[in-house]
Each structure stands twice: as C-alpha cells, then as structure tokens.
Design a binder for these strands. Structure first.
Lengths: 233, 233
DNA sequence: CCTACTTTGTGCGTACTTTCACAAGGGCGT
DNA sequence: ACGCCCTTGTGAAAGTACGCACAAAGTAGG
C-alpha cells in the first residue's frame, strides 16, 4: 500500500482530542475573521481554555502543521481541523420532535458554522404537522423512513419526550441513520455500528449541584478564593 | 470489618463517577415507580448502559449499600445517591436569555426530578420582558443582581447569544452565583471558585461527524455490523 | 555563516479510568 | 445448622489522559 500523503495520521486520534478540536476550530475561525494570520500554541490555548502542551499534543495528532519559532497558520489550521472533523463535506440532519427544544435546535442558525444541513423536522402531533419552522414544513413522524431514505440523512436528532425516544431512535436506525444526538433523558439502545451522543440538562445540573454541595460542605471560608482568583487574564 | 464506620465517603468521589450517578439515579427512580424493590448490579448496569463492574465500583464510593447475594435496595439507593448529589436540598436556578432555548429550558418540567427551583428568567430584549413563560414573568437583565441576591440563586444558566454570554456570566458571578451552566458557544472565563459546565450543540454534531467520516473512510461493508454486532478493532 | 531567540513536537513520569477476576459475605433450601 | 449458590466489593492490571520540561527546528539579525 502506497501512502498517499506524508501525514502520520493513523487511525487513532484520542477521543479526548476529538472532543476539543471543535473548540479550537471555533477559536481559529474567530481569529480568521479578525484577520489574524498566525497564532502560537500559547495564545490559542489561552483562548480555548486549555493547557498549551495539551493543545500542541492534540494538534500533533493531525500532523505537523506548525512552524517552530512562529506558530500555526490560522487559515491552514482551520482547513486541517475541518477536514479531520469531516466538515468539508455536508452532513444531512433530521430532527424528531418539534416542541420547544426542537424549535430551538432548528433555529440554531447554521448549526455551528456550516457542514450540517437540516433536511427535515418530524413530529407525531398532527396539530404541529404542516407548520413551518425555520423554513421547513414539519412532517408527520410516519414519513420518517421515506424522508430519511430519500434525503440521505445520516444524523438523527431526538428532541422528543422521553417515552417516545427509543421508538424514534429505532426507526432512525432502521432507516439507515448511523449517528444519533439524543436530548431525551433516556439511555438509548442501538446496534454497535451506530454512534450516540447524549445531551442531558438535568444531568448537568445534578453534577453542578454535587460540586455546589461540596463547596458548602467543606467549610465556609468567609470570602476566600474570590479575590485572589479573579486575576486571570 | 469496621464496626462504626458507616461511610467511608472520603472527600474524593472521582469525576467520572459523579457524572454517572445521575444516570443511575434516573434508572432507579423509574424502577421505584414500577414497584421494583431490589436490583442487582448486573441489571442496573444494563439499564444504565454501563459495565457492571464499573457500576459496583461507582457505588462503592458512596459506601457499602448493597447486600451480597441479593443486590441493592432500590429506594435506599435512590436516597443515598440523591443525598450524595445534593438533591435532598433545593437549589435555586436563574436562566438568562429567553429565546427559543431559554423557553425550552424553562418549560423542561421539574428539571430532572426535583431539587431545582427556577427562580427567575432574564432577558435584555424589552419586547420579551414582562411576558409570562413557564409561570414566571420575564425580568429585565438589569435586575439580575437584585434578584440573584434576594432569591439566593446559586446556579446560573446562560442561554443568551454568544456575544452576551461572558458579560452575563460576569454579572452572575459578581452577584454571587457559584455554578454556571453555559449553552452559548463560547469559552467562559471565571474565577477558580466557580464551576462551569458547557453544553454545546455544534460540538456534539462535529464529534458525530468525525466518527461518521471514519465509518465511511474505512470502507462500506454493505450490511455488515448490524445484527452481528461484535466490537470493532 | 553563525549566533541568539522563539516556539513546536514529544519523551516521560504521574494521575485517573476502566476492566478483570475472585475472595468475602449473606440468603435460602434442606 | 449446614452448605450451596448468588452477588457484592475490591485488589491489581491494563489502558488513557495530562502536563512538564527540553531538544529540535525554524526565524532574524549581524
């Protein structure tokens, strides 16, 4: 097998790194818009809220795209990260559940930057079907299979009540969707070939509550940790 | 064994464990409602979507609340996890930004189960101020400091546009909020004593896109990996 | 060309997580 | 009361992730 390119990108970029690449990407895109041409790992790390060594190691997984003594070319890095994340092609998304959350998602302009196209909105409630939301007509959930097939949807977003989530998920998967983003508070069951990511408000709050309790439990240093902590720029 | 050491709960429960406790809790509450009295680590792990050894180790951090040969008492475990997460007391929450997302959050009934009380909704747009959302009157963002102080808000939720997020965050922190849940696509800067958790839709999608691309890259096994779902190499 | 300076890329020790595998403990039938 | 069988709780191993500290590699200036 002849290696097509000089990049060492083997098949294993650590999950932890993958999860941070979007953060770097967003920071870099902001810089690009402001006309910044070059950035050091130190500066980019500060903006992204991480350690600079970690940033460099993360980027090193994509290849050696920096110049020693100078830093990274902003535009080039934007391109490389985009490509690595698969954003140079468009992904087709469908959203199931057009309640408050579904609408919020549908209207979430541009879905990040670009790279994602919302192809359809589904709901089971006939009072909602036919409404126009974010420029799309809401379709009945029973047309899911047809639409997913014809539109080539690869990512399904579940914004339904918890009770319907697994059912909708099964239908997505059966129709050929291979990635699911789940906002319903349930653990979804899928075949191993399907990726699921979960966003769960109440879990996040509970984690915060845990730490909040810890702060209170420990002691109550009258006003400590406040003043000497502020200086962080 | 130790006669008088009811809980070994030292001050260090691993973060990874804390993040899973809410999942266990939800599963257990569901079982409690269905009248199930006892559950084994194996069964609970399956429902929660984790390995049973991991579940047992997680629970062991709270103390020895299981009975060998039998399993865990559902109600008792619900209580212990709730207490550990700090859900036996009420936390006061304020939401900034009453757009689509803010409304969705405000209407997200019960915020998990209970333990969280939404005390106020804020927005900068005077066309929204005064509206009633989820039983609360939307207040102007300039009253944030007063309300946070008088209501004793400890958790602030940021559902504003990205541009306003850091500003709102600073005001929350200045007013005494010590935990922040951020839905805006920016990295927030806070003093070390403040906890921040981030929920970012576009990051989740990008992570899915990465894996989606990987699947496509590798090859396209026509219908493989569906039923016979072994692990990947 | 050579020296001084800057910033990347990474080897390595440390800490955290996950998973295995099994001894210890407890209920239950006889 | 006894022993069988089940499930917990946990050492220890394996796998990941993090961050320091520094050599390598490039720029800039004389």
């Amino acid at each position: 097998m002849t290696p097509r390119s000089p990049r060492p990108r083997d098949r294993g970029i650590p999950e932890a790194t993958v999860a941070r690449l979007p953060v770097y990407l967003r920071a870099l895109q902001g810089m690009a818009e402001r006309g910044i041409l070059t950035v050091s790992s130190e500066d980019l790390a500060t903006i992204a809220g991480v350690n600079s060594a970690k940033l460099r190691k993360d980027l090193s997984h994509l290849g050696s795209y920096g110049t020693r003594g100078v830093g990274y070319d902003v535009d080039y890095l934007v391109y490389q990260i985009s490509r690595e994340l698969g954003l140079t092609q468009d992904w087709t998304v469908a959203i199931a559940g057009v309640g408050n959350l579904g609408r919020a998602l549908a209207n979430y302009g541009g879905f990040g930057t670009r790279g994602f196209r919302i192809a359809a909105l589904f709901d089971a409630d006939r009072r909602v079907v036919g409404d126009e939301v974010a420029g799309l007509v809401v379709r009945h959930i029973d047309t899911l299979e047809d639409v997913v097939g014809s539109e080539g949807v690869s990512i399904g977003v579940i914004a339904t009540p918890a009770a319907s989530a697994q059912g909708v998920c099964d239908r997505f998967v059966e129709a050929g969707v291979t990635s699911v983003l789940n906002f319903a508070p349930v653990v979804l069951n899928v075949p191993p070939a399907v990726d699921v990511r979960k966003v769960d408000l109440s879990i996040e709050l509970q984690i915060l509550a845990f730490h909040e309790q810890r702060k209170a439990d420990g002691q109550a240093p009258p006003e400590a940790g406040w003043i000497d902590a502020t200086e962080k720029t």
